[in-house]
Each structure stands twice: as C-alpha cells, then as structure tokens.
C-alpha cells in the first residue's frame, strides 16, 4: 500500500511536475478543440451532401465512410506523419493529429448525422421546399435542428470516444497530456504523473459518461 502511494499518489512528485501536466493539458484541449470542430463540420457536410442522392457521389461517400471506420486512428496518423514525408509532404505533429482525427471522426459523425436526417419525415422537406426554401435553407432551418436533437445520444457517445482517441497523438511526439506525463515520469523515476494524466482525462470525460447514462435511463 505504501509502495502504491509512493509511486502513484506522490504529492511531492506531482508538485514538482505539475508544469508538465498543465502544458500538456492545454495542448490536449487545443487538439480537441480544433479537431472536434473540423470532424463535426466534415461529418455534417458529408451527410448533407449524401442526402442529395447523387448516385456516383454517394457511392464514394459510403466507401469513404466505411473505409475510414475500418482504419485504426493510429494507423491513419502514422500514414500522415511518417509516410507522407517520403513523397515530400512534411506535416507538423499537431497538423497531422488534427488531420487524422478529423478525417476519421468525420466518417463517424457522417453516419450519425445521416441517421438523424433520415429520421425526419420526408414530408417536412417537401413542405419546406414548397414554401420556397432552397435545399440549403431547408436543411439549415428545418431538418438539421430536429435531426441533431434526435441523434444527441449517439453524438455524445461518439464525442467521448473521439476525445479519448486524441491521446493517440502522443505517439507522434505531440506534447499532449500523456506525452508530458510520460516525460515527467522518466525524469522523476516515479509514475505519479501518469495518475495525474488519467485524472485530467477523467475530469474531461466523466461528465460525458454521466450524460450518456442519463440518455440511457430515459
């Protein structure tokens, strides 16, 4: 028990290394901010375009979505970060992480938004169009506000998984929470900073888990 407290709950180590964790936290928050917005926008765009039902384009979108859902995020990230430089495309770690997370996350969000759009009765689109709204206006003012409400539970679940996946960015040396904590562990020979990293992630993610619980109980 004492060994556990010394190695995982060591206040002295935590005080000495809190700077690492805080810089890491800001990096992770920045990563989440950028990539989450891009992933959602990309997913929304794909689902709206898909709903136009252009035959060739739809096949392509379905193929894109299913391929990206089949590819582990870390594989995609490594392709972008380690493979692209060989053909002359150097991408900084942060951009690579945002790109990988957005391309991957967009595929998941596209599926969710599509389900939401399809859940809204076609008659509403027809009514809105008859009233003189164009396609974009119909989507923006009539369909999407309802669709997003319908898919709020899977949207939350997916966002939780998305945020958890951002920790993968530490593998390409992005100084995020996990990377900084690992470095702090190596310089202090004490894994307490990893506990700190876990606590920071829990602070971000537990509210979402509670929200998911509430959706499930209703």
């Amino acid at each position: 028990m004492e060994a556990f407290a010394h190695n995982f709950l060591n206040i002295n180590v935590l005080i000495r290394t809190h700077g690492f964790l805080i810089t890491g936290l800001f990096m992770t928050l920045r990563l989440i901010g950028f990539s989450l917005i891009l992933a959602m926008a990309w997913g929304l765009f794909l689902s709206v375009v898909r709903n136009v039902h252009l035959p060739g384009l739809n096949t392509f979108i379905v193929f894109y979505v299913d391929t990206l859902r089949s590819l582990p995020i870390l594989v995609l990230l490594m392709l972008i970060y380690y493979a692209l430089p060989f053909v002359g495309i150097q991408v900084p770690a942060f951009t690579a992480a945002v790109l990988a997370l957005s391309l991957n996350g967009g595929a998941y969000y596209a599926e969710i938004f599509r389900a939401g759009i399809e859940a809204i009765h076609r008659g509403q689109t027809e009514a809105a169009r008859t009233l003189g709204l164009n396609y974009i206006q119909t989507m923006r003012h009539v369909i999407l506000p309802q669709a997003i409400r319908v898919v709020l539970p899977p949207l939350t679940t997916n966002t939780l998984e998305f945020i958890k996946a951002t920790a993968a960015a530490s593998v390409v040396a992005l100084p995020d929470i996990l990377r900084q904590a690992s470095q702090a562990m190596n310089s202090t020979f004490n894994p307490t900073p990893l506990t700190g990293a876990l606590v920071l992630y829990l602070l971000i993610c537990l509210p979402l888990v509670q929200l998911i619980r509430r959706f499930e109980n209703n």
Partner: peptide, 12 residues
C-alpha cells in the same frame, strides 16, 4: 474505465 483513454491506461 469508459472515460479513460486506452493509451493512458495501457501506459500505466
């Protein structure tokens, strides 16, 4: 466990 990133846990 649902709120923790796999990579953080496996590192610990």
């Amino acid at each position: 466990l649902r709120a923790s990133p796999y990579l953080v846990l496996v590192t610990i």
